[in-house]
Design a protein around this nucleic acid. Structure first.
Length: 629
RNA sequence: GGGGCGGUAGCUCAAUUGGUUAGAGUACCGGACUGUCGAUCCGGUGGUUGCGGGUUCGAGUCCCGUCCGCCUCGCCA
């Protein structure tokens, strides 16, 4: 082992003294060395060249001129092209040609006396330039290192860092410990499809990548950690969307000896801190809404409250019309209890002209009929209210009748100029269709979403514990199987007969979702800490005691050895950053995202492995390459 | 698994209803220019129209298949 210290090593050819965003008039007269990428060059020939050099911190103008530099140096500057990596040393001075107010460093320039080309760049496939039109995303992803050089992307990376930094600070101040949990985990195939990993040393056995650290964080509470947080990676092998990736990040936490209000208050504090730190915005106290109210008024469990356009049930009025579509829909399961998913209902949205409803053209409303078919609805009947208060167009003739019209006007609060959109179908289809339509109408008439302008937070609570799967007819947990019934529902839940559908369906959980501008940004619950309650949940979900034991024995055991009441929540980090950065593309907030087919276009993952690797892992592929006809 | 949109020069786009040698801006190359700052001016190189079939006198354009990307339904406890 040598005893040389760093200071004794031979001198390096250059040493950076300032970043490219740093120099100001205060530095005039100093010798500075800046390093970075050639952003642009302005070659005036015969001895005057300007180079804008870029790094993460900004742009600095370098000037090469024959009065102050040898011809070889000016010639070398002449050859510089975009994305060359250079180090330049020279004296800082006030710009001779006057300041450039667009740049933070725009009052000064560096008169270069020494230039090192550290890495000559090939002509790049695209320039990392926010002013030019963005190349297609495929190319951006393939050359991600170029795309990430763009100031906008650098800003997003920095914002993401700020979010995790604020999270660590905030939760640290509140007594949380950051604890890591395994990525190689046990397969528990409820919920999302899992990624699985074969075990080399245990032939035939597999790990799964966690959908979330759910059970580990609960075990950490049983372990006496009291408050846990982690910024963790989660994996769900489901098809991606604009705001969804198979591999994503959560700010995950769990607390002992708390009620749901404690967790909601803690998270509200975090959101408030974060919005203040990131945007300087004060988040007011967050409203709370029940799941039922959300579904009834907004047709969705994550209402966007930046605009009104609420949904109203008019089934009792619609049944008195002669409109066949209404009557046929209402005939389905007419005697069933409310909220029964198959029960026929008629619902309506009133769009007032002042809110932009005047922009609802015939062409738009005609298009809605086609559009709602993707949600299983048959169409969107429409009426308009004319200046005299009469109904026009569409199905007006069915509704502009005595005994119906006045009730509709009263129920919906109709005014001249209003447009009314209807849905007549089963409860679940009509609710979903109008919920989606409400958001589409808002976009079409310019009510929102306006990113970065308004922040409408909302807690949604009192979710049902269970819902019936449409296809299998089995109960599934609405949140996850470890969610506790609301504290006042525990006894009702324990007492509910396994076959008493109404009783089971009406049990409300201690879960809560945090919604921002119509997007779910966090979700959590108070957990079950009682083994009997947990066993009952498993049995309702169709797990035999043996299956429950095989999959979750560690949890059931832990719950028997002194489990504190506990609960937690997880923030979707990617979506949070999307909101804060005003992008609707989740790939923009992930440094190295994947495409819709799960490919990393830069590294070309996924890729084949060798037969030897497969043999080691005791696996074999059944996939056969398609033969070309 | 289903539906939709897209793929033309390195990049961003154009190309009339199927009709001449597929154009423009930018980048790149060469030249001019001493105060620019998205420099400017002059000239030039650059194309398997994603790929494979088909229809046609003739295909970037129409048809079939396929690959890739995006949006979306299902899915995402």
């Amino acid at each position: 082992m040598s005893t040389t210290t760093a200071a004794q090593l031979p001198p390096s050819p250059y040493r950076r003294t300032h970043t490219c965003g740093q120099l100001r008039p205060d530095h005039v007269g100093q010798r500075a060395t800046v390093c970075g990428w050639v952003n642009s060059y302005r070659d005036h020939g015969t001895g005057l060249v300007f180079i804008d050099i870029r790094d993460r911190f900004g742009l600095t103008q370098l000037v090469f001129e024959r009065e102050s530099a040898p011809q070889e140096l000016v010639d070398a500057a002449d050859k510089l092209r975009g994305e060359d990596v250079i180090a330049a040393t020279g004296e800082v001075r006030i710009r001779v040609g006057g300041p450039n107010p667009k740049l933070a460093t725009g009052e000064v320039e560096v008169v270069v006396s020494t230039l090192s080309v550290l890495n000559k760049a090939d002509n790049p496939p695209f320039a990392p330039d926010d002013l030019a039109a963005l190349p297609n995303e495929e190319l951006r992803l393939r050359h991600r290192y170029l795309d990430l050089r763009r100031p906008k992307m650098q800003k997003i990376l920095a914002s993401r860092h700020r979010v995790t930094k604020v999270a660590r600070d905030y939760f640290d101040e509140n007594g949380f410990l950051e604890i890591e949990t395994p990525v190689l985990y046990k397969s528990t195939p409820e919920g999302a499809r899992e990624f699985i990993v074969p075990s080399r040393v245990n032939p035939g056995l597999w790990y799964a990548l966690p959908q979330s650290p759910q059970l580990f964080k609960q075990i950490l509470m049983v372990s006496g950690c009291d408050r846990y947080m982690q910024i963790c990676r989660c994996f769900r092998d489901e098809d991606p969307r604009a705001d969804r990736q198979a591999e994503f990040s959560q700010i995950d936490l769990e607390m002992s000896f708390v009620q749901r209000e404690d967790i909601m208050a803690m998270m509200e504090g975090f959101a408030r801190r974060l919005w203040k730190a990131a945007l300087g915005v004060d988040v007011p106290p967050i409203r709370v809404m029940s799941y039922r109210e959300a579904m009834e008024k907004y047709g969705i469990d994550r209402p966007d409250l930046r605009y009104e356009l609420t949904i109203t049930d008019i089934s009792d009025i619609a049944v008195r019309t002669d409109f066949k579509v209404f009557r046929d829909a209402l005939a389905q399961h007419a005697g069933a209890p409310p909220y029964y998913s198959k029960k026929g209902v008629v619902k309506a949205i009133r769009v007032p002209p002042g809110a932009g409803g005047a922009k609802l053209t015939r062409k738009l409303t005609d298009g809605y009929t086609e559009w709602v078919k993707t949600f299983g609805a048959g169409g969107v009947p429409v009426i308009k209210v004319n200046d005299a208060g009469g109904f026009e167009t569409g199905i007006a003739k069915f509704l502009d009748v005595p005994g119906v019209k006045d009730d509709l006007v009263r129920r919906l609060g109709l005014q001249p100029g209003d447009t009314v959109l209807f849905a007549a179908d089963s409860y679940s289809v009509a609710t979903k269709a109008l919920g989606e339509l409400r958001q589409k109408v808002a976009r079409d008439i310019g009510l929102g979403p306006e990113w970065g302008k308004a922040w409408e937070f909302l807690w949604v609570v009192d979710f049902p514990m269970f819902e019936k799967n449409k296809d299998t007819g089995k109960w599934v947990a609405m949140h996850h199987p470890f969610t506790a019934p609301r504290f006042d529902q525990q006894q009702a839940f324990v007492d509910a007969g396994v076959d008493d559908e109404v009783a089971i369906e009406s049990v409300v959980s201690a879960g809560y979702d945090l919604v921002l501008n119509g997007s779910e940004i966090a979700g959590g619950s108070i957990r079950i800490h009682n083994p009997a309650v947990q066993s009952k949940v498993f049995s309702l979900l169709g797990l035999t005691p043996e299956q429950a034991k095989e999959k979750f024995s560690f949890l059931l055991e832990a719950l028997r050895f002194g489990a504190p009441p506990h609960g937690g929540i997880a923030f979707g980090l990617d979506r949070l950053v999307m909101h804060l950065c005003g992008t609707e593309n989740i790939r923009d907030v992930i440094a190295f995202p994947k495409t819709q087919t799960g490919a990393d276009l830069m590294t070309q993952a996924p890729s084949p492995v060798t037969d030897a690797q497969m043999r080691d892992l005791h696996v074999q592929s059944t996939w056969v390459p398609p033969t070309r006809a």
